[in-house]
Design a protein around this nucleic acid. Sequence first.
DNA 1: CGCCTACTTGAAGGGCATCAAGCGAAGTGG
DNA 2: CCACTTCGCTTGATGCCCTTCAAGTAGGCG
Lengths: 209, 209
Amino acid sequence: MHMLAIATPGASPTTRRLRTASKHNQFLEPRQAVSADPLAEMMTVESGCLALSHYLPDGRRQISDIVGPGRIFSIGADCRAESLTYSSVAPADVSQDAYSSQGRMLLARMQAHALLLGRKTAAERVATAVLDLARQFAPAERASRQTRPTFILYPTRADLADWLGLTIETISRTLNSFKRMGLIGFDRPERITILNQIALERTAGGHTA
Amino acid sequence: MHMLAIATPGASPTTRRLRTASKHNQFLEPRQAVSADPLAEMMTVESGCLALSHYLPDGRRQISDIVGPGRIFSIGADCRAESLTYSSVAPADVSQDAYSSQGRMLLARMQAHALLLGRKTAAERVATAVLDLARQFAPAERASRQTRPTFILYPTRADLADWLGLTIETISRTLNSFKRMGLIGFDRPERITILNQIALERTAGGHTA
DNA sequence: CGCCTACTTGAAGGGCATCAAGCGAAGTGG
DNA sequence: CCACTTCGCTTGATGCCCTTCAAGTAGGCG
């Protein structure tokens, strides 16, 4: 179901530009899986974007989280971590503080996502997702709030569908409806600008977190 | 939205029968919320059954987990732990081993539940839930597998609906359809017997975990 | 230039929600 | 003790949100 781009790790000109780090780092091409490091229970995203996905035997996929720079994740059994763009990951040095706070955050995110999957409508789900991705991937220019927050939407429509428990078509329809309503803007499908954050948050149905 | 039974903690004849423990224990009547213990980040269920729930501003509820004896849970912000029967909970003494393994289990459960909410059909969800509750609440009589596993279904149809992202009516219809198909049996709504575990697991759609 | 992949858009259908009614057990008050 | 209420559950009829199916468009890369 997935056409994985063949990658020669660390060989492309693009990956070489990524931030250097210890010898256990992994540099990933788009659509490349993170290979589990038996020494590191948890890993951290240094740059790029990952999707944590889970599969049913018949191929149905559920993405449990989209992870951006600075965040920590773990790949246990039945969990595949896949890059959505050029990315680099490293074993997380788990000081207990970070472990506890990041673990708590991970759990809270999962609970919020369960609420989304179980009880929110399609529009609410997409609005929540857009705000979440903006928070993770929009450059932090809190000084100049003048400019509308803009960010690269690393997940494809298919990724969003598998994250939000919807279909590709519903994702596309909802995003374009948001565009027509002036909530967001995009010329290319992957470059999103938030035009009306208030209305988006209202549409997200509270608990945007 | 919730009619909570007024309880004088530890006063009823029934709660007094529960297993005694340290002074920080909480004894709960049915439908009573666990009050957050600021000293204890995580708590453990000694007996009974709890539901961890999350609410949208308009009242929609999502139960992220149903927790039985021996399991550990945490009540952070936006999370309410409610007893589904007479229960007792205690602060978890968090040896790092237990914390790590229980935390990992909690995360894995949440991911499996996200897969259920996002990608499984109603029948698959109910079958998965029945098997999960049987594993948690059926008396461990692995020696005598002769007898069909039977257990008390502490969550009501409404609880199950809010756990599985469905409605009361769909839960009822699906359970009765399982009964007609000979997968499960019940005379009273809350006393479930598993009659065909193999077929249930097949219906659950793999990854029963 | 042709193929492929991602995205978009319309039309039709289905799975589950909603609405509605009824049943039975437990609790309450007269 | 028995009407009366309440609550959880069941069952049927109808509706709708999202899926499914089906084209069609645009950008990227050989």
